[in-house]
C-alpha cells in the first residue's frame, strides 16, 4: 500500500493526575491552523499516558495544548511542541502594565496606577 500521507504520533502525559479533554492547536507548514478537542475519554484505557496518531496531508510544524487556557493547568511551560519560552508568573508580575483608562478616570492618576 502506497500512501503520501504523513503520520505523526503525539504522546501526552497526565502530569497533574486529573483526566481532562485535550484542546489542541496544530500549525502546518503552509501556515494553516487546525483546532480540535479530543474528549477526555481518550484516557479511558490508561489515565497516565496516551498516544494519539494524526494522519495528515501537510507537514506539522507546531502543536499546542490548551491554546485558550480552558484547562485547569498550573504549568503551562510543557504545553507546546517544539518547546516555547513561556513567561513565568514572576515575570508577568514585573511587566509594566499598560495605562488603564478606566482606572485613570476613577483615580485621576495620569500613569493609570501601575504601582500594584
Amino acid at each position: 500500500m502506497a500512501t503520501d500521507e504523513l503520520f505523526y504520533v503525539v504522546d501526552f502525559v497526565n502530569v497533574g493526575g486529573l483526566p481532562m479533554p485535550l484542546p489542541l492547536e496544530i500549525t502546518y507548514s503552509d501556515g494553516s491552523v487546525e483546532k480540535l478537542t479530543i474528549p477526555a475519554e481518550i484516557w479511558r484505557y490508561n489515565n497516565e499516558k496516551v498516544s494519539k496518531l494524526f494522519v495528515t496531508d501537510k507537514e506539522m510544524v507546531k502543536i499546542a495544548l490548551d491554546p485558550h487556557l480552558a484547562l485547569a493547568d498550573a504549568d503551562r511551560t510543557n504545553n507546546q511542541f517544539p518547546r516555547e519560552v513561556v513567561k513565568s508568573r514572576f515575570k508577568l508580575f514585573k511587566v509594566k502594565e499598560e495605562p488603564n483608562i478606566m482606572r485613570q478616570s476613577e483615580t485621576g492618576e495620569k500613569d493609570g496606577g501601575s504601582k500594584r
Binding site: 500512501t3 480540535l36 479530543i38 474528549p39 475519554e41 481518550i42 498516544s51 496518531l53
Partner: peptide, 27 residues
C-alpha cells in the same frame, strides 16, 4: 465522533498491514 477522536495510536512496533488499512479506510 468521540470514537474517532479518542482512538489511540497503534503500537508501531508490531503494526500489521491490516491496521494501517483499517486506519486509512476509516479516514
Amino acid at each position: 465522533s468521540d470514537d474517532m477522536l479518542t482512538a489511540r495510536a497503534p503500537n508501531f512496533e508490531e503494526f500489521p498491514y491490516r491496521a494501517l488499512e483499517q486506519l486509512l479506510s476509516r479516514r
